[in-house]
């Protein structure tokens, strides 16, 4: 009995903050403005929405692109920070800065740095002679999403680096020594010793990055609002606009439910493919 009482406060908070909003969203998605039950009418409206397909494709583009580079860059930096060299401690601290800077601050600064006219990036590129005309980082429809992916990579690769670094600390020295005895170069060490050992770390990190990427709104909303011409409209921004700019709460709820299911399927598939293999003897 006392056991239940101990758990009750935590359960109450969970119920209030998680269960109630989720259930309420589900209820909103199957009712209309007058409160009547309309089954899948909102879902149909959402599927036919002009921007739904755009939002889905942009989300996949953004998340896929971000993860690839976050993991690759983070792993390389983690391996680098694991080596012995002077100034290593300082470099480890500096690497954390992008992750620590608040999202809005980073996004605003990047927006001004990438400004086509007065941004410092274009200034350096043109005065250094690397390009002839200033690049439309946030105005060219083909470049804007890669630019945002780059900012997202910059923001989160330190997290991957720190996780990889932590994982590498647990690699026993004997493994390196036996590899070197077998004539392994540094590249072979990375391929055959480090990467297999940090595989579990990479699997969990990629899962986290996927979930964060799917929910990411701060950087894109701050910099482009989903524009220009909805080129960078991702699902979270689309849902936000439906709910708080168009006040179409029921359709926004339907969109949220669909997006939740989409993310859930993705995560389950991911775990099936990667985590199950780990359990094999």
């Amino acid at each position: 009995m006392t056991g239940v009482l101990f758990v009750l406060p935590a359960l109450a908070v969970l119920a209030l903050l998680i269960v109630y909003p989720v259930v309420n969203t589900g209820v909103l998605s199957v009712t209309n403005e007058q409160g009547a039950f309309v089954a899948l009418a909102n879902y149909e409206a959402v599927a036919e929405g002009r921007l739904t397909a755009t939002a889905v494709l942009n989300t996949i583009y953004f998340v896929g692109g971000s993860i690839v580079f976050q993991v690759v860059l983070g792993t390389l930096v983690g391996i680098l920070l694991n080596q012995q060299f002077r100034g290593r401690a300082f470099l480890r601290s500096v690497t954390l800065i992008p992750w620590v800077v608040p999202g809005i601050v980073a996004a605003t600064i990047w927006a001004w740095m990438l400004h086509s006219e007065v941004g410092i990036v274009n200034h350096l590129l043109t005065s250094g002679g690397l390009v002839n005309r200033s690049v439309g980082w946030l105005t060219d429809p083909d470049i804007v999403m890669p630019a945002l992916i780059a900012i997202n990579v910059w923001k989160l690769f330190p997290f991957v680096a720190i996780m990889v670094l932590a994982g590498l600390q647990t690699v026993p020295n004997e493994l390196y020594e036996s590899a070197r005895v077998d004539g392994a170069s540094f590249r072979d060490e990375i391929r055959h010793v480090m990467l297999p050992q940090i595989r579990p770390v990479l699997i969990s990190v990629t899962l986290l990055l996927t979930i964060w990427g799917l929910n990411a709104i701060t950087i894109i909303y701050t910099i482009t609002r989903g524009g220009p011409a909805n080129r960078t409209l991702v699902m979270p921004i689309y849902i936000y606009r439906q709910a708080f700019e168009a006040f179409a709460f029921h359709q926004a709820a339907a969109l949220s439910a669909v997006f939740f299911l989409f993310s859930l399927v993705l995560v389950v598939l991911y775990l099936r493919v990667f985590a199950v293999q780990e359990g094999r003897p």
Binding site: E117, V118, T139
Partner: peptide, 21 residues
């Protein structure tokens, strides 16, 4: 109009005007 138009609001074009761009 400058190439940055698609990311410019009233404040940004005022800044460009002040910078004599």
């Amino acid at each position: 109009s400058p190439p940055s138009t698609l990311q410019d609001d009233g404040l940004a074009i005022r800044r460009l005007f002040v910078a004599e761009s």
